[in-house]
């Protein structure tokens, strides 16, 4: 259950962004969540509801998840492939010289404020 810890980080950063922009209440926080980030979106949203409602600036604020599919790059055959079904091993040439291009994101994409 690291989702709650992550929620506290989101709250801190969202509040910081609101203060910097002179905003009093945030209505939506949009997250980029990578497929292999180890964050479970359902748990994140449950924890969010519990924690965000305790913050006046975030009371009722919705957490939207923008999922990012995981994609790896193979250095040997210079190709991209879907990480989840194949892991570290390139399905095109069998090489293990691969690394994650995207899919590890746990980031705040944007915040939305109703005017």
């Amino acid at each position: 259950m690291h989702e709650l810890g992550i929620v506290f980080y989101i709250i801190r950063d969202a509040k910081q962004a609101a203060l910097e922009n002179g905003v009093e209440h945030i209505d939506t926080v949009v997250m980029n969540i990578g497929e292999v980030s180890t964050v479970v979106p359902e748990y994140l949203c449950d924890c969010w509801r519990w924690a965000a409602d305790k913050e006046p600036m975030l009371k009722g604020c919705e957490l939207k998840i923008n999922p990012i599919p995981a994609v790896s790059w193979c250095d040997a055959c210079k190709s991209e492939y879907a990480t989840v079904p194949h892991g570290k091993k390139c399905p095109n040439c069998g090489s293990g010289a691969t690394w994650l291009l995207r899919g590890n994101e746990v980031e705040i994409k944007e915040i939305e404020i109703k005017e």
């Binding site: 980080y9 989101i10 980031e107 994409k109 944007e110 939305e112 404020i113």
Partner: peptide, 18 residues
């Protein structure tokens, strides 16, 4: 219709901790 202001952040939640 209600207008919505969007503030782009694009920052990892682990950035501060790092």
């Amino acid at each position: 219709m209600e207008k919505v202001k969007v503030i782009e952040i694009k920052k990892s939640v682990f950035a501060e901790n790092d």
